[in-house]
Design a protein around this nucleic acid. Sequence first.
DNA 1: TTCTTTGTAACAAGAAAAGTTACATTAAGA
DNA 2: TCTTAATGTAACTTTTCTTGTTACAAAGAA
Lengths: 142, 142
Amino acid sequence: MTVSTKLSVAVHIMALIEINREQAITSEYIAASVHTNPVVIRRIMSQLKKSGLLHSSPGISATYLLKPSNEISLYDIYKAVEGDQEIFNIHKNPNPDCIVGRNIQAVLNHEFNKAQLTMEAELKHIYLSEVIQEIKEREKKL
Amino acid sequence: MTVSTKLSVAVHIMALIEINREQAITSEYIAASVHTNPVVIRRIMSQLKKSGLLHSSPGISATYLLKPSNEISLYDIYKAVEGDQEIFNIHKNPNPDCIVGRNIQAVLNHEFNKAQLTMEAELKHIYLSEVIQEIKEREKKL
DNA sequence: TTCTTTGTAACAAGAAAAGTTACATTAAGA
DNA sequence: TCTTAATGTAACTTTTCTTGTTACAAAGAA
């Protein structure tokens, strides 16, 4: 179960950009907030850019979201950074001479897919704006 | 971002045991069907055993399920082999001097949890008996 | 032109999963 | 009781994937 932090870092990046909408922030600044290397940030921003979620241009620190935050779901961000990767891994090369071996992959693929789709459906209902709102509300309570 | 193949191997093991209920099968036999090492099989069987899903005893090849297959869900198997591992990983040590940094973990933990719970709820509805049924149905079509 | 920043490639380090070896323990049967 | 065959586990290696790092080209602003 190797789980990447790309999604959480990507959400962090997007939230930070939106909250600092007035200021120009650099990948170095974001990296300091996330606590990682600037290249890790640029790499993820590059994926977000390819998915049309944000804009940036070389040489100049001018990054902004391409859609209002209440139109960007965690699913959008998730797909941007994880692509069509399947959550559930299925073992390779089961024995084709066995009834289970030659059918298990297709069957599990079908079942696992159902589970993944419900999870993705849930992510579609969670918007970046809500995440930002929750960040601000938690901040008040601190 | 993937769940290990432990779940798929575990389901394979359970289905194989149930389908071969009349015969005694060894971890070596199962390993040949899964296409892996017998120790990998025993390791996973040990976890299934600890969760009360199957019985086995040292020295003797006498393995069987402890519940009818229509009372064992993929969720049961999933929890047995993956425990309480979270699907979505959140980056560690974000900067506490930043409003996003000091709140992102709590917020994402909350949101990701919702997504994980829906996924798990779906797994609860998929029973080992269905998986076995699908294996048999696919077999007819081959 | 100089400085700063982005965009990427290439590689290193780290962590987790899977595979392997080894061996103690247990049971069955000769 | 001795032999054989199986499980249960520990320890170690290999592999794979993610994350971190270095390096540098390209772009823009002053």
